[in-house]
C-alpha cells in the first residue's frame, strides 16, 4: 500500500523544517454547497491537512462557536453521508491534501463501521478523529480502520496521565492532537510555556508529529505554538469568520484565507 497522505505530508514538512497548518471547519456550515470551496480556499492559503467536522446534534466537547456551526449545518440537512460526498468532490481536483474527519461516534455507529470505513476510503478520507472514542473503546474497530488505510487520530490533554499517554501514543497514527487546555473548543487562554512543558515527555514516547489545537486564534499564537509543536490546529477562529459571514457566503473564502494566510506567514517566518 502506498504511504498515507498524512504521513507523506508530515514527512515533507519535516524535510523542509516547516510546521503543519491544520484548519478545522464544520462541513455544511453555513450551507452544504459551500464546503468544498472552503476546503480549496484553505489549501490555497497554505493548509497542510484539513480537518472536516461532521455535524452532530450533541457536540459535548465543543464550545458555542462550533455548537452553532453544527446547528447551521444540520438545519440544512448535512449528514455524514453528505460529508463523505463533499470529500469525494474535493478529491476530484485535489489528490494530495490529507483530509481528516472529526466528529462524534454516534453518526459513524449508526452508519455502521463497515460501511463507514469503505465509503470513507472510497471518498478519499485519510484519517478519522472521533472525539468521544478513546483508544480503549475503539480497540474492537481499530483493525477495520487499519485494513482500509484510515488512520486513527487521537487526542491528548493536559490531564492525560503518563500511563494513558503511553497507550495513546501506541495506538495513534498520523499525528497526535494535543488539546492545549482544559475546556471546550473556542476557549480563550492558551499557555505556550505549559504546552511546551507537557509536550516534552511525549517526545520521548513517540515519533508521531505533535499538533496542538484549542486556543489558536491568530498568527501570533500560531507562531508561538509552532516553536514547540509540529503543527497547529485552528478551528473556532475560522468558524467564527464563517458565522459572521453566514448571510453572504461569497465573502467567506477570502475571510478564511486572511486568517490562515497570517498564520502561514507567522509559522514560516
Amino acid at each position: 500500500m502506498t504511504m498515507n497522505r498524512i504521513d507523506q505530508r508530515f514527512a515533507a514538512l519535516k524535510d523542509q523544517s516547516r510546521r503543519a497548518l491544520i484548519p478545522y471547519i464544520t462541513a455544511g456550515d453555513p450551507a452544504p454547497q459551500h464546503t468544498v470551496g472552503f476546503m480549496h480556499a484553505c489549501v490555497e492559503a497554505g493548509a497542510d491537512v484539513l480537518e472536516l467536522g461532521v455535524p452532530f446534534s450533541d457536540p459535548m466537547a465543543d464550545g458555542p462557536v462550533i455548537q452553532k456551526a453544527c446547528e447551521r449545518a444540520l438545519k440544512h440537512g448535512t449528514r455524514l453521508a453528505d460529508v463523505l460526498d463533499m470529500v469525494a468532490s474535493f478529491r476530484e481536483t485535489d489528490q494530495t491534501t490529507p483530509v481528516v474527519l472529526m466528529g462524534y461516534v454516534n453518526p459513524v455507529e449508526r452508519m455502521g463501521y463497515e460501511t463507514f470505513v469503505r465509503r470513507a476510503r472510497e471518498a478519499g478520507v485519510d484519517g478519522v478523529l472521533m472525539v468521544d472514542m478513546p483508544p480503549e473503546e475503539g480497540a474492537e474497530v481499530a483493525p477495520l480502520f487499519a485494513e482500509h488505510g484510515l488512520q486513527s487520530i487521537f487526542l491528548l490533554a493536559p490531564t492525560t496521565s503518563s500511563v494513558r499517554a503511553a497507550t495513546i501514543c501506541a495506538h495513534g497514527e498520523g499525528y497526535l492532537y494535543y488539546v492545549s487546555l482544559k475546556g471546550v473548543t473556542g476557549a480563550a487562554s492558551l499557555d505556550v510555556e505549559a504546552v511546551a512543558r507537557q509536550l516534552a515527555p511525549l517526545r520521548e514516547m513517540t515519533d508521531l508529529p505533535l499538533c496542538v489545537g484549542f486556543g489558536i486564534r491568530d498568527g501570533e499564537t500560531a507562531a508561538a505554538v509552532g516553536r514547540v509543536a509540529d503543527g497547529v490546529i485552528v478551528g473556532s477562529a475560522l468558524v467564527s469568520r464563517i458565522a459572521e459571514n453566514a448571510e453572504r457566503p461569497e465573502a467567506i473564502p477570502a475571510a478564511l484565507k486572511a486568517v490562515l494566510g497570517d498564520m502561514r506567514d507567522a509559522l514560516d517566518r
Binding site: M60, A61, V105, V131, D132, M133, P134, E136, E137, F154, L155, L156, A157, P158, T159, T160, S161, R164, I168, V179, K182, G183
Partner: peptide, 22 residues
Amino acid sequence: AQGHFGPYGGRFVSETLSFALE
C-alpha cells in the same frame, strides 16, 4: 473493569475527562 455491561456502557468521553473519571 472497563465499565461494560455486555455490549453497553463504557467510557466514551473526550480525553480531557479520562483522568477525572479514572
